[in-house]
Design a protein around this nucleic acid. Sequence first.
DNA 1: CTGGGATTCTAACCCATATTAGATTCCACC
DNA 2: GGTGGAATCTAATATGGGTTAGAATCCCAG
Lengths: 206, 206
Amino acid sequence: MNSTEAVASSATSKSAQTRQRILDAAAEVLSRKGYAGTRLSDVAQVAGVQAPAIYYYFSSRDELVEEVMWVGANRVRLHLAEVLAALPEDTSCMDRLMVAVDAHLRFELQLSHYATASIRNAGHVPEQLRIRPAAEEALYSRLWRELFAEAQQAGEVRADLDINMFRLLLLGAMNWVVEWWNPRTRSLDELVATAQAMVRTGAGAV
Amino acid sequence: MNSTEAVASSATSKSAQTRQRILDAAAEVLSRKGYAGTRLSDVAQVAGVQAPAIYYYFSSRDELVEEVMWVGANRVRLHLAEVLAALPEDTSCMDRLMVAVDAHLRFELQLSHYATASIRNAGHVPEQLRIRPAAEEALYSRLWRELFAEAQQAGEVRADLDINMFRLLLLGAMNWVVEWWNPRTRSLDELVATAQAMVRTGAGAV
DNA sequence: CTGGGATTCTAACCCATATTAGATTCCACC
DNA sequence: GGTGGAATCTAATATGGGTTAGAATCCCAG
């Protein structure tokens, strides 16, 4: 095995898998219990290791938390970018917004504890842990700003609407869902449809 | 001074004032730093006492936090109820909703650190601290449910809209504002107007 | 004044949890 | 099958911050 192969295979080596298990466990616990309620012992238990083993992969609890937050913000952004890129060229601006709402909600509620952890704890972790995740969130915001700006320029969003504030309110509505969502009692399709209605007939030109 | 007077004046006695200062300080720090970031020493400093003095009025940090959360939820509810009760009898359902949006946002952003503390930390404090505040929040939710239900019955909200989900999304949008609001760079009037637009032309019948 | 409860302080304590030390096990390769 | 580094464990340590003890101070009633 040469060094190139070593690097390539390292992604699935036992070591890398353990690191991944720990990171996944941290994301799950953080999304469920929040920053204040997350013990390293909880994370270790979910990951199936003893707490000190975490220090073989992360230099501190905060570094672990920071990485979860960054991965969460990063994945949400990449997911949305991917979904938007896959749309036909002639998709209308409003339809793009609808797809974005759909993608954001389904990703945060179904696909990623990282996203949930990132959203719930963004405002609750120490300042220094927010720097790298905040950069990702800024890029994510830019995607949404562009969607709204283009929709407004195309006349598909009312010209007199403050799209910056509307965007912040909409993302807030969708982010807050993690605080009350219960997959057993609510339909995700219904949620997506309602959120889309909030935008379409809320921001759409008559 | 008889005992009745003693009780009456106790509300403004030095002792009661100190207790109030501590509670106010806790609300302020909690709203700014969140549950995880709130040290008793921070609260004490803001209140102008030493940390152990807090224990003369509250039996533990968690009891102090719980009281802040309850007061926050309680005040928001009473404020909205009051504002709604003051409206003319013939106010339309949609106008009542607009007033409610206005009241919620202005109260949480201008009038009450308690409200902000309550909103930001509801999902981040230990389970046992949520019981009493949750009861208040349930009553608050009921106010909003009634507003939406009446508006839908009156035909001022589209019949096919899932008003429960819409309400949760709307309250989420407004609650999340505390995560990004900066009074120096944004206009509160503009915010209120945008949130109202989100409801009116979003949920309103055409 | 002054005595005594109310209030607040200083100094200590404790305890949960993050972190480190050092021993041990695992495992790929010779 | 031995050997050396990687990975993980057990046991101990460190420390921030909530909490308690007991002394000091305040302040009003008599």
